[in-house]
Design a protein around this nucleic acid. Structure first.
Lengths: 94, 94
DNA sequence: TTGATATGCAAGTCACCACTTGCCTATAAT
DNA sequence: ATTATAGGCAAGTGGTGACTTGCATATCAA
């Protein structure tokens, strides 16, 4: 089990969420190629797969398997743990 | 320079922000004692000091020195980098 | 000035995380 | 059946982050 803060503390994982926000439901191979093409990342498929595992463990993505493909969907719900924990604007000075 | 995601990836630092949200402008010693008393942490003063340094480097706290005391204030502005990066609710299915 | 208070700096240790490598499983196509 | 595609598992490595320890600096009180 990985918490949302740990999951977000990695630029590669944040880029994965960016790309799923643009186009939801991509496969591992699609995510690999888009990270390579659009962000210049040169990571192995296994590295990306491990990142997806972390994101799924934190609840930030949910997956659906069809045949030999596995589709990944962005789930923003865990982000509420961050937005709800602290006030977002400065309190009035006392 | 530490980014906001790195800074938040530590429960001790998150607790510091919690406590500053409750009572802003505490000194290092005050933060140490409140973490010990209310959260059962047994960390050295130096450990807490390093955490405060990380939070300040990320812009999440600002400090003000008066005499031999240094007061720490919570600054939530960097949190906007998180809340603004991804949609907070699930997109309508296509 | 002497001592106590509040904080800072720097080196060292330990554990964890990101990444790679190598091999394996399952589904689909020919 | 054989081959290719899509993904999974596990061990090993390198680097970094959290924490401690020891010493130093600065401010205030007596």
């Amino acid at each position: 089990m990985v918490d949302v803060f740990r999951a977000l503390d990695d630029e590669t994982r944040r880029l994965v969420l960016d790309e799923l926000s643009v186009r939801d439901g991509q496969t591992l191979f699609e995510i690999c190629s888009v990270l390579t093409m659009r962000h210049g990342l040169s990571l192995t498929r296994q590295a990306i797969s491990q990142h997806l595992g972390v994101l799924e463990s934190a609840g930030l993505i949910v997956t659906e398997r069809r045949g030999r493909s596995k589709f990944h969907y962005f789930n923003p719900e865990p982000l509420a743990e961050i937005t709800g924990r602290w006030p977002t604007r400065k309190r009035t000075e006392q």
